[in-house]
Design a binder for these strands. Structure first.
Lengths: 246, 246
DNA sequence: ATACAGACTTTCGTATGCAAAAGACACTGA
DNA sequence: TCAGTGTCTTTTGCATACGAAAGTCTGTAT
């Protein structure tokens, strides 16, 4: 009973004791501050939530997570704090943590916010991108189109994420980039549209978007990104409707 | 040395032991779940940071905060986790927490993001607001104008916050409202413009904004909010320049 | 059979303890 | 005088311990 029914993939997180040997330290080139365990726990938990090992609504018993990950409750609790503020879990006083249950309404709200943020990001990117950076954009686009042709969904999803992420970098606004990162990850948790029939259209829109950024046309980049993200939002609703009627 | 040089205002947070008496429980009407200490610590720390008792860059020694607030290190640590993800402190591994030092660049980025989010919020508010809600907006506007006439800066600042906050509520998008809340608090920490010479202008713009919302004119509400927030951003830069040349 | 009361179990929230990393400081040697 | 080094202090990060709240189950009375 104290063992989780389904063992968590990824295994224990606490490898600290194992690689304590400091001999051959010359191999470590930088300062190499060991990231605290809570960081590893945080990342492990997000992975477990995103891949549905921990399901929405599930009660996360601290001691179970701790034992599975090979740590004590303390770093788990600290990770849960962060996960709450980022919307992955809900912490009910005296009851503990529950994996957040995404409602359709919330998904729509997130998609709406994402649309606005990404649009702003595209506008700023068009204002700031250098020719070298535009070249990098085109490289990323190439990867995506190749993945599309190869019908490689995993690569397609990651290429899409990389492209959008790089555009946020080009915005030269770290605050904006960070917010988009947070919102995007949650959106992708709720809904992964890029694998669907919107693939070709989406990548054609990317093409136009990059052209606008290359031309430094902020208004046009803006407009395209708005259309692009709002279409994604529509695709979400269509998928939802399809689910509902099946 | 273990006592902070400047004692923290607000005093101890742990009054739990004091009001443990459960007799007369009938007075508690709802469930009244006692919020965890970490919540109180979290709020106390934000207050201490915003009012500059804890200054930017200052090293926050856990045991000192804990002793002053009358709790142990644990709830302090958990509060610090949350404060980090919200941008109030920086947590350096094995070194602890430092009050985040806001740079001018970051302030500008925050103001830029805030502008976009508030603009979207105004647009949605115009689409959703009911006549009753518009009346409430006008009431809030009245409070602000009264405070302006009375030259009551405190009331002016809070009226401004209330008005903007209420507009985010009208957007009917909780995710957006929460993000704006976070960004706004940090912006106000960096810079409190409403007390400055922009008072009259700002409240005149509010008037137009409310008219647009009342008319359900989303595009116009949008436009006004963009101008409004971008002017705030300009005011920040002017103030910065004034500081620099003095 | 069902509703209620009370004990029991589980789990959280907080406090405390301990090892280890980071920084401070004085000492040594050139 | 100053760079380098070893020791000592401070503070973090993690683990463990304990009291209390919430949920669960059982037994009893109606």
């Amino acid at each position: 009973m104290s063992e989780p029914a389904t063992p968590f993939p990824g295994g224990a997180v606490n490898r600290r004791r194992a690689n304590r040997g400091t001999l051959g330290g010359a191999a470590d080139r930088k300062v190499e501050r060991p990231a605290p365990l809570r960081q590893a726990v945080y990342e492990a938990l997000i992975e477990l939530i995103v891949n549905r090992t921990l399901q929405p609504g599930q009660h996360l018993v601290e001691i179970e997570l701790a034992e599975y990950l090979g740590v004590s409750r303390q770093p788990v609790r600290e990770a849960l704090q962060r996960l709450q503020t980022e919307g992955w879990v809900d912490l009910r006083p005296a009851q503990g943590a529950f994996v957040h249950t995404p409602t359709e309404e919330e998904a729509d709200q997130l998609l709406s916010v994402r649309s606005v943020l990404e649009t702003h990001s595209a506008k700023l990117a068009a204002e700031h991108a250098t020719p070298e950076e535009v070249e990098m954009l085109r490289d990323l686009q190439g990867l995506g189109v190749a993945a599309l042709k190869a019908r490689d969904v995993d690569r397609l999803v990651s290429a899409n994420a990389d492209l959008h992420s790089f555009i946020t970098t080009l915005s030269r606004n770290d605050v904006l980039a960070e917010l988009i990162g947070l919102v995007d990850r949650r959106v992708r948790w709720y809904y992964t549209p890029i694998a669907g029939p919107r693939g070709e259209d989406a990548w054609a829109e990317h093409e136009q978007l990059i052209d606008a950024i290359a031309a430094g046309d902020a208004a046009e980049a803006s407009r395209i990104m708005t259309v692009h993200t709002e279409r994604t939002r529509l695709a979400y609703h269509e998928q939802r409707q399809a689910r509902a009627s099946s």
